[in-house]
Simulated scan of single mutants.
Amino acid sequence: MSVADRVVVIAGATSASGLAATRELMAAGATVIAVGRDAEKLQELADAVGTDGLRTEVCDLTDEADVAALAERVHAAEGPVDGLLHLVGGWRGGGGLAGQTEDDYRFLERSFTALRHVSRAFDADLRASSSARTAIVSSVAVNRPLAGGANYAAVKAASEAWARAVAQGFAKAAKDSGQPLAAASVIFRTQSLDGLEQALAQRFTDLWTTPAAETNDTIVELTDPSL
C-alpha cells in the first residue's frame, strides 16, 4: 500500500505545511490538488515544486457552492479523490474570556466551516476509494483549554468531533457493504506546527502504508521527531 497514483486534495495548501505536504506527496507519486484562496500564492507553490503531478485550484472553502464547483472541476480533470488533508487554520486569542470577541470566533470558525464543506463534497469519493485517507490538524488545547484561547479550543474541539464523525461514516459504509474498511480519518494534534511541517507531511503520506482499520478514528500526537 502506498499513496502512489492517488489523488489527494490539500485544503489550505499555501502555508509552509502545505508546501511540505505537497512536495512529499508528489515525491511519493501522488497527484496533488492544492487548494487556496490566493492565486498568487498558489503560483508560488507551483513554482517551488513544479507542475508534474500538481493541480492548483482557487476556491473559497467557506463557500459551499464554490466547494461544490471545485469538486466538479477535480472530478472532470483528475477523477475521484483518494485523500484530503485539511490545513485551513489561523490563530486569534489572549485577554481571557473577556478578550474572546465574536469577531475572533467567526475568524477561527472559518476553518471548521471549510472542513465541513470540503469533507462533504468529497465524501462519496473517499468512501468508494480502494484506499482513502483524511486528516486534520488539531491542537493540544482541546485537552487543556485556556481562557485566553477559548475560541480557538472550541473550534478545534468541533473539528475533532467532525473528523471522528467522518471516521464513523467510513466504518459504517464498509460494514453496510460487507467490504473491508479501506478509508481512514485521522486527527493530528500538536502544540504548534512551527518546525514540524516536514514531520506532518511525512506522517500524512505514511498513512497509506498502514491498514485503514488500524488508523481510522485515531489521534496522532505530532511532536519534534528529533526529541
Rank of each mutant, 00 (worst) to 15 (best):
E102N: 03
D66P: 08
T113P: 08
G93R: 07
P80R: 09
E78P: 00
S111P: 01
P80M: 05
L108I: 13
V74G: 03
L61F: 05
V81L: 07
A65T: 14
R37P: 07
T62N: 01
R23L: 03
R92M: 11
V88T: 12
G50R: 02
G99F: 11
A39Q: 15
V81A: 08
G94H: 04
G53H: 02
V58W: 09
A114R: 03
A30F: 07
A69C: 04
V35K: 13
A65K: 15
K41G: 09
D60W: 10
L70E: 06
G99H: 11
R106Y: 06
S111M: 04
L84H: 04
V74Y: 02
D60N: 14
R110Q: 15
D47S: 07
V35W: 12
A39D: 15
F107N: 00
G36V: 10
A76R: 12
A69G: 12
L45P: 03
R55P: 00
G36A: 14
A98Q: 13
R92V: 13
A76N: 11
T113H: 09
G93H: 09
G93W: 05
G93F: 07
T51P: 02
T62P: 00
G83L: 04
T62Q: 06
V67E: 11
L42C: 14
A27Y: 09
G50I: 03
F112Y: 15
G94V: 02
G36L: 13
E57Q: 14
V32T: 07
I33W: 05
G36H: 14
A76Q: 12
E57W: 08
F107A: 00
E102R: 07
G36T: 09
V81F: 06
T56H: 06
E44N: 10
R55V: 09
A27T: 11
V74D: 03
D103H: 11
G96T: 02
H86R: 05
F107E: 00
L61S: 06
F107T: 03
A39I: 15
E109R: 12
D82G: 00
E57Y: 13
A77R: 15
E109F: 14
E109Q: 14
A46C: 03
K41T: 13
A28L: 08
E40A: 15
F112K: 10
L54D: 09
R73I: 13
D38T: 15
G79Y: 05
D103K: 12
T51D: 11
G90E: 01
L70Y: 06
W91A: 04
T113R: 14
D52K: 07
A69V: 06
L70A: 06
G83W: 02
E109P: 02
R92F: 07
A30S: 14
A65I: 11
A98R: 14
R73A: 10
E72L: 05
A39S: 15
V81R: 05
L42D: 10
E57L: 09
H86C: 06
A69Q: 12
Q100C: 06
G36P: 13
V49H: 09
D82L: 01
